[in-house]
Design a binder for these strands. Structure first.
Length: 655
RNA sequence: GGGACCGUAGCUCAGCUGGAUAGAGCAUCUGCCUUCUAAGCAGAGGGUCGCAGGUUCGAGUCCUGCCGGUCCUACCA
């Protein structure tokens, strides 16, 4: 609703500037720093001052005098050295919000593909993975809330080095048979078992460098689908994927389709891409030098700075001298598939049906198990890859590949949704008995290492949060049934975790601090949930007392709104609550889920202040009481939507 | 060597395409539970926005240089 007012003012000013001064400049509308200056501000007079050779103040005054009334805007005034400040017509604004049914946004054309999670299926997920998934999932929700059609992909590298290492661990170190592994993976927390085994295998390599040959052999066997090793590889990877899906679902995160590396190999996606790359001369064969015998992409394609002199040595190897393709090569093929320009597709079979009925599909190379009655996958118009920022170089190469093939549009719509890693605060390392070197102790954060088995497992963290929330819930609501308390505690835990991972902007390294993450006070998820619960409680109490929630559209009108909303605190709360759409657009265009999280927090803050100062139920003045009730209802609706639909944070029944 | 990012309150972080008196949370201190739940609210202290120049009506934000830190720059992913 708010952006409508912005838009109107912008258009009115643009028209006026054109007609009166003959200038066509973009009119910036912003919000004044202080609320008593109005709701909208336009610093246009400053921009015009030089052109018109007049003082900004004079220009602003002229504009105020000349601007015809703008619907929804009550007044326009000059402030400071030449700001144009506008005040909204509060009564009209309130009436508009009252009348507007919660309309779903219009569906936008095209399909947006968001790839996130992408965890190597060889061990339990840790907090770094959670940041990826929560960021990705929230961004997906933001896109959907704005009317976009989104497909969520979770790419599974089930034939890579990391899986091979765990296979080596089972086969060579533990000498376990397929059946023995099968028995293990049926037991709970197989991913934890692999977490330790992976660390042990890595340590073994360090002590026995010759054992690296096991890895090479395993990798080869897995890629070619040969023998016991390959069987183990599939068994382990599939089981771990199940673990990851279960972990993510605890946070409300689900997927539409899981493309797998093994299918990319078997269906020869790469071969198809390779032909295209060769034909279009996007890559070339190196005859001598460092990269002799490789197919490479010239550095000029993906590096602005690479000049004439950058030779073959700076190029990125796509096909190794032994004929195997690098990950980047496969990624180019995969990215082409995402846009529907590869000319090939996977077969698909259902992998999991979530409790809400949603089905996640998995790619298969086996036509016999393919299910044809299914959604269409791939073929997106824009693609977001949620991948940590350390891989930006490789993402650049992938995009350069598309460009070199002539797919300019697809290259432009390939977005590396990058984010920084999650490290551990030194304090938390001490708490978790993670050994710190002298060097580490001086740093503000310590990097986690999956290979060393150092880190915070996702499920452990979630469990810890639930446990802590449970203590709080039990203390406040001992009379409630246990199962219910457990559910509430879980919702609080999810809120705390998701908000914690979202409150940082993407390119900020999170120095994960356990105490901070476990906090339920201040700028946290539970704080926001609490505001929503409080609003709900007012309405519940009202009904409990035998009253009914009024039909606001019948008992309120613009005049009553105007009268009550002249009170600044009421107006400020309404204004804040009405900005959820603007906040979504802003967060979307900046690509920062953190902005949306922050909006929710600020809205909760506004409500908590209001809640403290204006008890609604005891209010004597009936008109005021009705408006306040409506405010609570409107606030609740907006916050619920922002929390549940956009941020994926549940709202508990009570707290 | 080349590229990218970062440096804002004691700590952790916001600060939208340059705009009005630089903001939150935590921590510290002071108040507020007989009220729709205190997981809350009100208030206080705390800043040469790394340093130095420049651009202009205006710079935390843009440009240059320097200082400090991180990541990338694999025939690993």
């Amino acid at each position: 609703m708010f952006h409508l007012a912005e838009q109107r003012l912008r258009e009115a000013l643009t028209t006026l500037l054109k007609e009166r001064y003959g200038v066509d400049i973009p009119v910036v509308i912003e919000q004044p720093k202080q609320s008593d200056l109005g709701e909208l501000a336009a610093p246009v007079a400053f921009a015009l001052a030089r052109q018109l050779k007049k003082a900004p103040k004079v220009i602003a005054a002229e504009i105020v005098a000349a601007l015809p009334p703008v619907p929804g805007i009550a007044s326009l005034e000059v402030a400071g050295n030449g700001f144009l400040n506008a005040r909204l017509d509060r009564g009209a604004y309130g009436a508009l919000l009252l009348a507007a049914a919660s309309q779903a946004p219009a569906t936008l054309p095209g399909k947006t593909i968001v790839e996130h999670t992408n965890i190597n299926p060889n061990k339990a997920a840790h907090i770094g993975h959670l940041r990826n998934s929560v960021l990705g999932d929230t961004f997906v929700r933001m896109l959907r809330a704005s009317g976009r059609t989104v497909e969520v992909q979770n790419y599974i590298d089930n034939t890579g080095v990391q899986v091979a290492d765990v296979v080596v661990g089972f086969h060579h170190l533990e000498k376990k048979s397929v059946d023995e592994v099968r028995a293990l993976l049926a037991a709970p927390r197989f991913d934890y078992y692999c977490w330790d085994l992976y660390a042990r295998t890595s340590a073994y390599y360090a002590d026995h460098p010759e054992a690296i040959q096991w890895r090479r052999d395993a990798l080869h066997a897995i890629e070619h689908g040969e023998g016991v090793i390959a069987e183990l590889g599939h068994l382990i990877a599939d089981a771990i994927v199940e673990c990851h899906l279960t972990t993510m679902w605890r946070l409300g995160i689900s997927y539409d389709v899981l493309p797998r590396e093994s299918e990319i190999l078997h269906l020869q996606f790469w071969a198809t891409a390779f032909e295209q790359l060769k034909q279009r001369k996007a890559i070339y064969f190196v005859e001598e030098g460092k990269n002799k015998g490789c197919w490479v992409m010239a550095a000029t394609h993906f590096r602005d700075s690479a000049g004439e002199d950058s030779g073959d040595d700076d190029a990125k190897v796509i096909v190794r001298s032994n004929g195997t393709v690098t990950y980047v090569g496969k990624d180019i093929a995969y990215q082409m598939w995402k846009f529907g320009i590869l000319g090939k597709d996977f077969h698909y079979t259902p992998l999991r049906t979530y409790p809400d009925g949603h089905v996640a599909w998995v790619a298969t190379a086996d036509e016999s198990e393919a299910v044809t009655n299914r959604p269409a996958f791939g073929g997106g118009t824009e693609v977001y890859n949620v991948i940590d920022s350390r891989q930006s170089y490789l993402q650049d190469v992938v995009v350069a590949g598309l460009r070199a093939l002539g797919y300019e549009q697809q290259a432009d719509h390939s977005i590396h949704f990058s984010y920084e890693m999650v490290a551990l605060s030194p304090r938390t390392c001490v708490e978790l008995d993670i050994p710190l070197s002298e060097e580490d102790k001086k740093k503000s954060y310590v990097e986690v290492s999956g290979r060393k088995g150092l880190g915070v497992k996702a499920d452990d963290l979630i469990d810890k949060l639930i446990e802590k929330a449970q203590v709080e819930v039990d203390a406040r609501h001992a009379e409630k049934p246990e199962a219910e308390r457990k559910r509430v505690a879980t919702q609080i835990a999810i809120g705390a975790l998701r908000y914690f991972l979202l409150k940082f902007t993407r390119n900020t390294v999170i120095a994960f601090d356990l105490q901070e993450a476990l906090s339920f006070e201040g700028e946290t998820g539970p704080y926001i949930q609490y505001a929503a619960v409080r609003a709900g409680k007012i309405l519940a109490k009202l009904v409990e007392r035998g009253e009914q929630i009024p039909e606001f559209t019948e008992v309120l009108d613009a005049e009553k709104m105007a009268r009550q909303l002249s009170s600044e605190p009421f107006w400020q709360l309404l204004l804040a609550a009405s900005k959820s759409g603007s906040a979504l657009n802003a967060a979307l265009s900046s690509g920062e889920p953190a902005a949306m999280a922050r909006y929710a927090f600020q809205l909760a803050q506004a409500f908590n202040t209001f809640y403290q100062d204006y008890p609604i139920l005891p209010e004597k003045d009936p008109e005021k009481r009705t408006v306040l009730l409506w405010l609570a209802v409107f606030f609740q609706k907006q916050l619920h939507h922002t929390l549940q639909n956009v941020l994926g944070i549940p709202v508990p029944e009570y707290m």
